[in-house]
Computed example of a mutant assay.
Amino acid sequence: MNHSELSTLATEAFRPELADIDRLPTAEIARIMNAGDRSVPGAVAGQLPRIAAAIDATADRMARGGRLVYAGAGTAGRLGVLDASECPPTFNTAPGQVVGLIAGGPTALLAAVEGAEDSRELAAADLDALSLTADDTVVGVSASGRTPYAVGAVEHARALGALTVGLACNEGSALAAAADHAIEVVVGPELLTGSTRLKAGTAQKLVLNMISTITMIRLGKTYGNLMVDVRASNEKLRARSRRIVALATGASDSEIEAALTATDGEVKPAILVLLAGVDADTATRLLAKTDGHLRAALDH
């Protein structure tokens, strides 16, 4: 992307009123930065109908066994990897069910990989390694909306019949044009000219939070606002599991311990044991019949 192209992007615009920001007191710089950050949720709010439509389409495919794949470069790629990596402990997603691809691979999480973001071919190769299907969803993430890796990922995925979402922070982006679902959260110029890890990064994080969290709610990974599919892999999470069962059932500590012991620490069947008065094996069978939806299992 050349100088003239950059100058047309809202995310790259120069704010002349901040030309002397380095001369200001630290507290004043922090105030200015905080004031600018307040515009981000409003920009996201303007895209909520598009975000919701993308989530519903994603959840439909994931219910059929599809995967959610994020693809981006630099900060955008790191945010996708972060969101994907947090799904297994939060929602007990299967390995490979939510995937984060970053241009340049894992090395790029810590250091820039020269030229990786400029390669559409690299994006296609990374997706081909996943053996993409029509039930999968690929979310291209790019602040500029022009990053070749993200645009290439969406174009390649769409050609293979997968659902595609383009998340950008500029209007009229190539990424949005390439995708089935376009989400353009326009947050305007950054405090530091072109530093899109700031407002643009915050906006992307908010939208990715929505995509993964609400998709998992639609897939029955929660019960109300409780994380009933949490994977209790350490003492903090084991304590959280006990608290979730307590909040869902109102049972005594001894009853909760007995139920969790019977279900090998699994929260959903433990809640079913306590609320439906069934044994652990029956609870597990009921959840299998309802594809893991606790409310549906309770209705049974």
Rank of each mutant, 00 (worst) to 15 (best):
L237F: 11
K236R: 15
Y223H: 12
M227Y: 07
G224M: 09
D229Q: 04
K236C: 07
N225Y: 05
M227W: 05
G220M: 01
L208F: 09
V230N: 00
Y223A: 00
N225R: 12
L206S: 11
V207C: 08
G224E: 13
I214C: 06
M210Q: 12
V228H: 01
S212Y: 00
L208A: 13
N234P: 07
N234M: 13
M216Y: 01
L208P: 03
N225M: 07
M210S: 03
T215E: 00
M227N: 04
K221G: 14
M227L: 15
I214E: 00
V230L: 15
N225T: 12
A232M: 07
G224F: 09
M216P: 10
S233F: 00
V207I: 09
L219H: 10
K205L: 04
V230M: 15
N225W: 02
T213A: 11
L226N: 11
Y223M: 06
K236W: 13
M216A: 11
V228T: 15
G220H: 01
I211R: 13
N225F: 03
R218S: 10
R231W: 06
N234H: 14
A232V: 01
I217N: 01
N234K: 15
A232D: 04
G224R: 13
T222Y: 05
I214M: 11
L206H: 09
K205V: 05
S212M: 04
R218H: 13
S212N: 08
N225G: 11
R218M: 10
N209L: 05
V228C: 14
R218K: 15
G224C: 08
N209P: 06
K221E: 06
G220T: 00
S233R: 06
G224W: 12
I211E: 05
L206K: 14
V207W: 04
A232Q: 02
M216G: 08
L208V: 11
T215L: 02
N234A: 14
L219Y: 06
A232N: 01
L237N: 09
M227I: 03
G224K: 11
I214D: 02
K236I: 05
L226D: 13
L237W: 08
L237A: 10
D229R: 04
D229H: 04
L208N: 12
A232F: 03
L208I: 07
G224L: 07
G224H: 09
Y223P: 02
K236F: 11
K236V: 00
K221I: 01
G220S: 03
E235H: 14
L226Y: 14
M227P: 00
M227H: 06
M216Q: 12
R218T: 09
N225C: 00
K221R: 15
S233N: 12
I211G: 01
V230E: 04
S212Q: 03
L219M: 14
I211C: 07
L226G: 10
T213C: 06
I211D: 01
S233Q: 10
S233A: 14
V207N: 07
Y223S: 04
S212D: 02
L219R: 11
D229V: 00
M210Y: 06
M216N: 10
L208Y: 10
G224Y: 08
G220L: 04
T213P: 03
K221N: 07
R218Y: 09
